[in-house]
Design a protein around this nucleic acid. Structure first.
Length: 441
RNA sequence: GAGAUUGUAGCUCAGUCGGUUAGAGCGUCAGAUUGUGGUCCUGAAGGUCGCGGGUUCGAUUCCCGUCAUUCUCCCCA
């Protein structure tokens, strides 16, 4: 018989319970925080018409969209969504009667056809956990994006992250100040972006290689060869309306962050942050781990006031951010933040014989009525085997209900972690399993 | 897309300066008084040495190609 070699698609992964339990916990934290700020869930199809997606992200990213063979080359060509922001914008365009501001969250996988790099948390299939709000230009919404990212990461136990904040308007202003075409912003940003890894001298060399005019490079150098604060930058560009507008926005945003109670050691203005996606128009943010520099950004987002207009012809302000589940999960693995766990079952009810099975089933029902995650061994078997099963799965308690217990109308509970066990009634057993009572010797 | 790295048991890796039956640890399974696991002991199963070709009396080992993997750059969640 011929066999097919089982394999997973490159850059995609299977998740076993020991991973999924953690991933679910992470998204549970997110959902809770998202809802706390008034965001409501939506979902959009994994598949979209190519023309909905194409031309929104920029040339490089467009190439990474997974196109589907189905009806290739026609207007109806399909593709897997590359992110959740563009499909969401499409949805907003198709639902003009949404009550504004509309705040939604969306947790779904997205697909990108680039080279996987697991160590950096880079995959072809990965989950984005998006929050976006449309219909308001208020910097308070932008601040909420940062506040939510902060709260989620903090709750998960991260201590070394930094949310970098910049503004597309400032970057455009700098390009303008350097006497370059607006279309060059992307290229300038690409070099500016490297300032967190390279010195200005090295970036300058690169700009020379890219054949930027000397005068422009010099002007860029004046701004970039030192770590500029927002105030320094403002003083350096007194006549640049674009940059000043961007600076004012960031100041307002920072003000809101302070009032929202976000600890200022976890965010900062960073001129070297230059997010590549084409659709950003205002503030942009990105989270890095200072002790995991190889790891890609954990979160990223920004304001995109023009994107929805590409579908409606009418400008509609919007801002959002995405929390990268796979990045967060991978970082937590690498930082040993995840306790090994294989199951959420709290107790395994042993089964002695066919006759005593109904007693075991009854006990299981009683325990479940107390919301205790209970498993029952599916058939009578040697106790040893049932213990081994519980031990391997990491189930903390065994409930033993044999002839002796049944006669006394009690049961034996054993804590597999300590090895202690005791004959008791059901009420007592519930307390022990829930951790409200400790087994004594 | 550019460069580098590695490919031997389910996993992590030894090893053969080219030579007969390729090893270990962990894991898996089965035993040691049929109401007690995780420690210990005994035993067992499990490998076309990535694939194709070349050199050779002989290749898992050397050479070429190929596929795959991982890492760095680029970019991103």
């Amino acid at each position: 018989m011929s066999q097919i070699k089982p394999r997973v698609f490159k850059g995609a992964r299977d998740f076993l319970p020991e991973q999924m339990l953690h991933r679910e916990r992470i998204t549970d934290v997110m959902r809770k925080v998202f809802k706390k700020y008034g965001f409501s869930p939506i979902e959009t199809p994994a598949i979209e018409y190519l023309d909905v997606l194409a031309g929104k992200y920029g040339e490089d990213a467009d190439r990474l969209i997974y196109r589907l063979d189905y009806k290739s080359g026609t207007k109806d060509q399909a593709a897997l969504h590359y992110d959740l922001t563009v499909p969401f914008s499409r949805l907003v365009a198709m639902n003009p009667d949404l009550t504004l501001p509309f705040k939604r969250y969306q947790i779904q996988p997205v697909w990108r056809a680039d080279r996987p790099q697991p160590h950096q948390g880079r995959f072809r299939e990965f989950y984005q956990c998006d929050i976006d709000a449309v219909g308001s230009k208020s910097m308070l919404i932008d601040a909420e994006m940062v506040a939510i990212a902060y709260e989620v990461l903090k709750t998960l136990g991260f201590t070394t992250f930094i949310i970098k904040i910049n503004n597309r308007k400032i970057l455009n202003g700098i390009t303008q100040y350097a006497g370059l075409e607006a279309s060059m912003t992307q290229e300038v940003c690409r070099s500016i972006d490297k300032l967190d890894k390279m010195s200005w001298d090295d970036v300058e060399k690169e700009l020379i290689e890219k054949e930027f005019p000397d005068s422009s490079i010099q002007k860029l150098g004046n701004l970039l060869n030192k770590n500029l604060t927002l105030d320094n930058l403002s003083e350096a560009l007194p006549d640049n309306a674009l940059a000043q507008e961007g600076i004012a926005e960031i100041r307002e945003l920072f003000g809101f962050l302070k009032e929202l109670g976000v600890d200022s050691q976890y965010y900062s203005f960073d001129l070297s942050l230059a997010r590549g996606l084409d659709y950003y128009t205002g503030p942009i943010f990105e989270t890095k781990l200072s002790d995991q520099p190889h790891m890609g950004s954990l979160t990223g987002g920004g304001r995109y006031d023009q994107l929805i207009g590409m579908f409606t012809g009418k400008e509609m302000p919007a801002v959002g951010t995405t929390l990268g589940l796979d990045r967060i999960f991978t970082a937590m693995q690498q930082l040993n933040m995840l306790e090994p766990i294989k199951t959420s079952t709290k107790v395994l009810v042993a089964v002695f014989s066919k006759e005593e099975m109904k007693n075991s089933l009854q006990l299981a029902s009683q325990l479940r009525a107390f919301d205790i995650a209970t498993e029952i061994f599916p058939e009578p078997d040697k106790l040893k085997k049932q213990f081994t099963y519980a031990d391997k799965k990491g189930i903390p308690f065994m409930a033993i209900l044999g002839q002796t217990e049944i006669e006394e109308n009690k049961l034996t509970i054993k804590d597999l972690r300590t090895g202690k066990q005791k004959l008791m009634n059901i009420e007592e057993a519930v307390k022990v399993i829930l951790g409200n009572l400790t087994l004594e010797d």
